[in-house]
Design a protein around this nucleic acid. Structure first.
Lengths: 232, 232
DNA sequence: ATTCAATGTTACCCAATTGTTACATTATTA
DNA sequence: TAATAATGTAACAATTGGGTAACATTGAAT
């Protein structure tokens, strides 16, 4: 596989800054997209799904804080790294930034060289330590990553829809433990939702279809479990 | 609903980090205490008895490694979860950290969101696992686990259908006690179900077939018992 | 509006589990 | 040791629970 280009989104209303960042980032080999306000930034984020967002706080139309909050609501963006760019004078507190899900912030004026090495360092770390910091279950050949909703079995990537993923995740969290349909419904669907118990069966079937049938065992009259006995 | 607040202790000499962690942890509903060096951390741990400790390694007065060692000596802290926070440069520490009883470590800079989801996941699993421990009977070579509906005899896994499993489980709960067919029917089948008493015999037979005939003894005219006399 | 993916529902079929019965075997007592 | 009471065993029947496919619905993306 060729060298992967990391995706970076730059959002700032000052065109100078956007250009300087774009120039430097592309020179470093990143795949860059830009926007000039928070709303545009959010739209691009939805499609582009960047791994890193550099976002100004003070912007017209939609400010960085609100934009960040909404970006975090995109499931695939839960694990992205979001850095705020702030002028020293701005009174937005550090706390407010972290509150909406920022991971870091830097104070303007931006020093491109310093920022680039910081970003490079981030991706280097990210690669090496992803599994150290994220909400991941590793079990047998399975790597189940809830922060990015991805499932790897060996080196095969398997895509599961939300419900199926959550079902698998829930079962794998406590391997071997048998859960009745009611428990699964209550935990995954929610205790208020009114869905037939047999729905669980169908989802189990769909998961099995995608991951292989040997992992989720049926205990007749009781429920289902994620079984690790057979796993080598 | 009175959600239980898990107790978390944060120990770091950098006040920024302490504050960021405190803020995020409290937002997640944890009961947080903090300290700025290992010695202070140890003192607080003694009284506070946290379930989770986030501890920097490099600190003045007493470093994290030594502090962790002493925290582990506190009887009530044996089961706590201790996570080290380390700067990448401190390569030396990984081995030493696990050596003194750390459970995990993460590399700075800390990503609050990722760390929070990881901590949440820890407590979620912790809770799930606790519930299971109550359902396991260990007796002689037998491990009868009601949470996974599995039976191990030595290192042999035996699969029993529901009724048979429950019959064995019920008998093994009070070894050597003799139960009449009526009692077994009432307890396992339920007092409302009406099933012939001889059904019990058949089930006993089926269980014996699978686990060996020496364990469940017949007491003529009375009933059956799970016998541990013959077990080595 | 239209398409497509995800989710939920239903009905049918099959197989494991469970229950019953008849008969064989064992234990107990005279 | 014969009688008889209790239990073991095997074969069979009944039932239940779960797999599955096909269809209906929802919801998101365009």
């Amino acid at each position: 596989m060729g060298k992967k280009k990391h995706k970076v989104l730059v959002v700032d209303d000052e065109q100078d800054i956007v250009e300087i960042l774009r120039y430097n980032l592309e020179k470093e080999g990143y795949d860059v997209k830009t926007a000039n306000d928070g709303k545009k930034g959010l739209e691009i984020a939805k499609k582009f799904l960047p791994e890193l967002v550099l976002m100004d706080i003070m912007m017209p139309v939609m400010d960085g804080v609100e934009s960040c909050r909404q970006i975090r609501d995109i499931p695939e963006m839960k694990a992205a790294y979001i850095i705020f760019l702030t002028a020293r004078a701005e009174e937005y507190s550090e706390v407010a930034a972290f509150d909406v899900g920022a991971d870091d912030y830097i104070i303007k004026p931006i020093k491109p060289r310093a920022l680039m090495s910081r970003i490079n360092a981030h991706f280097r770390r990210e690669l090496k330590n992803k599994e150290n910091e994220e909400d991941i279950i590793k079990i047998g050949k399975f790597i189940i990553d809830r922060s990015s909703y991805t499932l790897h079995i060996g080196d095969l990537q398997v895509n599961l829809p939300k419900k199926e993923f959550e079902l698998l995740y829930f079962l794998a969290e406590t391997p071997n433990k048998v859960y009745g349909r009611d428990e699964l419904l209550a935990s995954i669907w929610g205790s208020d939702v009114y869905v037939l118990a047999r729905t669980v069966d169908v989802h189990i079937r769909r998961v099995r279809e995608k991951i292989g049938s040997q992992y989720i065992k049926t205990v007749k009259g009781v429920g289902y479990k994620f079984d690790i006995v057979d796993q080598v």
